[in-house]
Structures are given as structure tokens and as C-alpha cells.
Amino acid sequence: MLCDDRTFYPGSASGILMAHLDGTGQMAAIHAARDTRKLLPPRLWPMTERVLLVAKSNMLEMLNPAGARAKLETAEVICVGAFRNRRALVPHYLAHYRDLGVDLFLVADNLSDDGTREYLLDQPDVLVFSCSSDDPMPRGQTMWKRALLDHFCPGRRVVLADAEEFLLTPRQGAGALRAACRELDAAGQDAALVHRVDMYPLGPLAEADFDLVPPQVAAPAHDRVPLRPWPLTAGPFGQVADHVRALPHRLLPLAAPQRFLSQKIAWSGSTR
């Protein structure tokens, strides 16, 4: 049986006899692991999905070398995100969250082809997981983040932030997120809502080139009233005060009035 991109390497556990590899770099490691009874490469699935080795199964494959997961044991604050082709933003994103106190990043990479994946793999504090197939819909990206949360983060302090989302904490400065986590833990809270505020440049949109200028400098403007309450819905549990983002509704005035919800549960603490 031949291994393809969505099955496992040859070995006694997989029953695969032959694999096509794009190079020879992995050959020795794959040979050495043939009789270890381990299914390699490491793959994981969302807990709510069926385990299928097919496209669109929301399966993730860990790309870092064996042993990299040891970083999970010592990380105090973890950041989880799903990226696709965000090469210009990623250095700023990592710097922002490192400064806030994040120790480790878990990234589901949605088949980036602009160098994002390679850049992430060069970082000492990033674990990269490749999606098995491209998914243009937000549902897939949510499923990947859920999979990373469920497998690696129970009882951990986690921020869920995609590449374009830069968290603003109640206090500023180095380690501010760590301090906020401790305060929320001490108060017995295990989650927080985070509202998305759309930022844009003072001039033409084309000037917001994050290859040249950090996003905080290139895009410092926002709508004066960036969020609006939407009182007619409160989510499936009927408890949360829904808000919508002002900018997309300004740009798309005929959109359904609650289409662009601003809030997401983007922080969870260690008490859950």
C-alpha cells in the first residue's frame, strides 16, 4: 500500500509498505521509526469530527520535529491561531504576543504559500500544524483551533488570536497578558469575551503595507463608535450581549444587521 499526503508513513502500526517522499531528508527518521508502533507523522482531528484520512476532514498534521511538543509542558500562556498567507503580519504578531507574555504559539496553517509556514517553522516557540486541505470557510478554521485547544490546552491559559488580531489588554506593557490571566484566575473566571475592532490607515488603504511598517503604525484609525449593540439576538444560550462591528456595516449597508458580530470568546484560563 502506498502512503500519500493524508495517510501515514510505512511501519508496523500503519500497515503502509511504501511511501512517496518529495526528498530524502526524512528517509532516515522514517526508517528508524518503522518498528516503534507509532503512527507518523503525528496527526490530530477535532474531537467533534470523524477520524477520516481524506480531504476536508479537518485533520491536522504536526510539522515540527519530534520532541518539539516538550515546550507545551512549560508554557504558561499559549496563543492559538489559524493562518493563511500572512507573511507580512506574522513577525509583528509574534513580537506583540511575546511582549504580552505568550510563551508558545500553536498555529494551524491553512496551506500558506507565501513563506508564512517556513517563517513559522524557523521560530523556536511556534508549533505548526498543517491542514490536510484548504478550507475557505471560517468553520474549518474554527474547527482547527478547537482541535488544538482540545488536544493540547485543557487547564491552560490560552488566547485565541488569528494573525490579524492584536490583543489590547486592560493594562499595557511587557507581560500584561500574564498579569491579566492571573487576575482573572484569582477572580475565578475562566473565559473572557474579546471584541474585534477594525483598524485602518489614515490615508488610502494601499498605504497599509505591513511589510514596511508595523500595523499599529500603518493603521492607527478606527471608527469613533467601532461597536454597536445588537439587542435582538443573544446567541443560542440567550445570555450574551451581542455586538456588531461598525466598519463592515458601514461598507456593506445592505448586509444583514447582525452579520458581522464583533465578540468572540478568545481567552480561557487555567481553572476550567
Partner: peptide, 11 residues
């Protein structure tokens, strides 16, 4: 709540 500064609209 807290806030994300969202830089999705870029060149």
C-alpha cells in the same frame, strides 16, 4: 471584555 485590534484590511 477586551479588544482585538483587527488589521484585516491591508494592501
Amino acid at each position: 471584555p477586551m479588544a482585538f485590534l483587527h488589521y484585516g484590511l491591508t494592501a
